[in-house]
């Protein structure tokens, strides 16, 4: 049997998660290439494919109806589809516009009438096609992606945490942002990133989305009582990467 064929595709996104794949350093990346054949990956190669693929990584949100056909075509020929990065898993930062009416003018100014800029609400790609697995994060954790690939090579379902970032902060003995007078969303944010932001003194923005059952009322309460947020700001805080999830819980 030949090596599994892997391809990367992108929709509404910055393509930063694809760039992450080139950040392993030569050794692990080349080692990975011993096990998979990358057949389409526009950040690193010019070739494209119309052949069947084993694993399709799809980056970016589904935010234009006209993208549906291309997503369906990828789904059709991919044995496994992985929503790759936060835009593809939950709509990510793109979903911030879901609560705004004037975003087009705001972002594109006088060019906002151009027809290719027409879009509707931003969702993860699972709003259009069936997704098998989710690689969360803005950007993805490349080491987690490596584990996802290694698992799939062995026919094993990847292990994606459903516990919050607090677990990872505590394991690495990061001083809690709240103990230094700051705020944080690590209590409701899905772990798996190894919590680099709080370790660097930056609050967690829940860039991997929420755990399955986030305690949002408690989050808002803590942000008000301990971080001094206004109730309005506390309520909107979670939207940055999880606008669609908040929509579902509120």
């Amino acid at each position: 049997m030949g090596k599994p064929k892997v391809a990367f595709f992108d929709f509404a996104c910055c393509e930063g998660c694809q760039i992450e794949m080139t950040n392993y350093g030569a050794e692990p990346f080349l080692e990975l290439l011993n096990h998979v054949e990358i057949v389409e990956f526009r950040e690193a190669m010019t070739e494209k494919t119309t052949e069947p693929i084993d694993i399709a990584f799809i980056e970016g949100s589904f935010t234009r109806e006209c993208d549906r056909a291309r997503l369906e075509e990828i789904r059709e020929r991919a044995a496994i589809v992985i929503a790759y990065g936060q835009c593809a898993t939950t709509g990510g930062i793109n979903a911030l516009k879901n609560h705004q009416d004037d975003y087009k003018e705001y972002v594109y100014g006088t060019d906002s009438d151009m027809p290719h800029l027409d879009s509707q609400k931003a969702y993860g790609v699972d709003a259009a096609i069936k997704v098998d697995y989710y690689a969360y994060g803005c950007p993805v954790n490349k080491y987690e992606v490596l584990q996802i690939v290694l698992h799939l090579l062995h026919g094993k379902e990847p292990v994606i945490p459903n516990y919050p970032v607090c677990v990872e902060c505590k394991r690495r003995e990061t001083v809690c942002r709240f103990l230094e007078g700051d705020h944080c969303m690590g209590m409701v944010a899905r772990a798996g990133c190894t919590a680099p932001c709080p370790a660097a003194g930056i609050p967690c923005e829940a860039c991997r989305g929420f755990v399955d059952d986030p305690n949002i009322p408690a989050l808002e309460k803590v942000l008000v009582e301990q971080a001094g947020f206004t109730p309005q700001r506390a309520h909107e805080k979670g939207r940055m990467f999880t606008a669609n999830a908040l929509e579902a819980t509120s």
């Binding site: 990975l32 011993n34 584990q147 290694l150 919050p164 394991r171 690590g186 009322p217």
Partner: peptide, 27 residues
């Protein structure tokens, strides 16, 4: 108001529960 974050367990000197997972190296 519990976040189910397990911080109380993780920092506890008398907690010792664990999960077990297998992983492969990049080879």
């Amino acid at each position: 108001d519990c976040f189910s974050c397990g911080s109380c367990n993780t920092v506890c000197p008398t907690c010792y529960c664990f999960d077990v997972q297998d992983t492969w190296n990049v080879d």
